[in-house]
Design a binder for these strands. Structure first.
Lengths: 287, 287
DNA sequence: TCTTGGCTTCCGTTCAGTGGAAGGCCCCGG
DNA sequence: CCGGGGCCTTCCACTGAACGGAAGCCAAGA
């Protein structure tokens, strides 16, 4: 740890990124001193680096003197594949699902040991829900999370199950054996069902969105041979959250599967073609 | 320029940010060499820095060896106020507008001399449109842009009008005098109307979302006195884009104004209260 | 008035960052 | 089969950019 701490912040880039990482949902705006404290940097250093980040508009400084994440960084972030490809492709299908059900529709990916929420549609009428776009929740307690974990690389599943898992409600499965069995069932069935395992009163149904042949050239050809590579981890998971007293959530599975398949297909298609129309973009140089 | 170029990339932070800035909509995935060329950095330097950014998950490297913007950066970006406050607050009202009209609903802010699109709702049925969340378009050619420019600081308006303006269609107003008159009219009316000035066949209507008293303590008190500070620049603009043959787009103004007012009010309210519920967030330390 | 806490600037020291060069890999064309 | 041209990676001696302690400024509060 001493060695790690030694290594981590030693590089300039590292220090700069530590400044950025000092922001989170609970602290979206920080004074210089707070920033320095949270990033564990000397004030003078934080001042210089934050100033530099500001001049590049990675940070912005409000009239109150506080630093916030800058529009430039937000713009950059939108270029991440989760947003610019996955979200883009999935959105119309998610909207169809929303309009048909008027419930919370979720799109998530696995990021390390977390469910990372990529998009969420909800109206006034939907169950209020803890998820947040860009937010994280444990994999084992959410519908989309179980769908992702069930399809994940065995090594990842092992690693996940080998830890002490948080237990948001009394219904959350945390014992290794039961959770493992549940995940196998999810994999077999092709969908995950979660009953109040994250939030009391909420039930969720989720299906994986299949990863297409990873290369850009596996097109119509018969998937290798019958044998082969273990099935690739799902690209994402698509889920719906409803009130627990709603009749038969399993009824939602077929439309979910249809949408997931369509998304997977479109993901594969768009993996090939070049770039969409470019416009009038990212013009101003900083400083 | 020589001096600028000299200054810009000289700092490590600068170099790192140049790497990030090498990505754009048309180039969301870059090989190391492309990255180095686009950032104008020696290959060895780009290699080292990109590796460091990767270890912090600001960049990710695909199985094809290409770098892409990382999920971590995307997550960070979502903490920017445009997304975490403005978008958050505006979204439900935008959805109401969408459900009532089924047309493209836009939320945008001014960023320098550009319209920066913060959110966009559109269904299958809406006019296909050039805007993109996180994308930029000229201020003078779009509905939201004109609403923003009309309310902007006079210095900004001056600066904008003093340049040579792009002319996406034959209907775009680019002569200084006419555009200036148009902007005054927009300010007087309280809404902007754009007829095929950006895209042939599309018309848009937009209203400003008022900036609330900037301090967190101007609450109920009478706005200073009658005299005072020039009216603050709008926080954002809200707009609808429809096909040009649709009857009377001005009919959309009242609902837009209502929504914009509601958004402004909620923005003011949420400016005060502390932080929303924090959860299970940003857990893993890199490397 | 004095204190406290936040912010900014300065400047001499030093060590992290630099980038040319060399080597490995793969693909293509002769 | 070999040579050339992409890519990517690693190495390492030099050097100037980054560091951060310290001092000074300002505003709020006691």
């Amino acid at each position: 740890m001493a060695a790690d701490a030694e290594r981590e912040g030693r590089s300039v880039t590292g220090r700069a990124l530590r400044l950025l990482a000092a922001f989170d949902v609970a602290h979206p705006a920080l004074t210089l001193s707070e920033l320095a404290r949270r990033a564990e940097l000397p004030l003078a250093t934080a001042h210089r680096l934050a100033g530099e980040l500001e001049s590049w508009r990675a940070l912005e400084r409000g009239s109150d003197g506080r630093f916030r994440v800058g529009n430039r960084l937000w713009e950059m972030g939108l270029l991440a594949p989760v947003s610019s490809r996955l979200r883009q492709v999935a959105l119309p299908y998610m909207q169809d699902l929303y309009e048909a059900t008027r419930e919370n529709i979720h799109l998530a990916v696995r990021d390390g040991f977390d469910t990372l929420y990529v998009e969420k549609l909800c109206g006034h009428r939907s169950v209020p829900i803890v998820s947040r776009v860009g937010g994280r929740l444990p994999l084992h307690a959410t519908g989309v999370g179980k769908a992702l974990l069930a399809g994940a690389d065995p090594a990842v599943r092992e690693g996940y199950l080998g830890r002490t898992l948080p237990r948001p409600t009394g219904f959350t499965l945390v014992e290794r054996g039961r959770l493992d069995r549940e995940l196998r069932a999810v994999a077999r069935r092709g969908y995950a069902l979660t009953r109040e395992e994250m939030t009391l009163g909420s039930v969720s149904v989720a299906v994986p969105v299949a990863q297409v042949g990873s290369g850009p050239d596996t097109q119509g050809a018969a998937r290798r041979d019958g044998t082969g590579d273990p099935p690739p981890e799902p690209a994402a998971a698509l889920g719906i959250v409803v009130r627990s007293h709603r009749a038969d959530p399993a009824r939602l599975v077929p439309p979910l599967k249809t949408a997931a398949q369509a998304i997977a297909r479109r993901l594969e298609e768009t993996a090939r073609d070049p770039a969409p129309g470019l416009e009038h973009e990212l013009p101003p140089l900083p400083r």
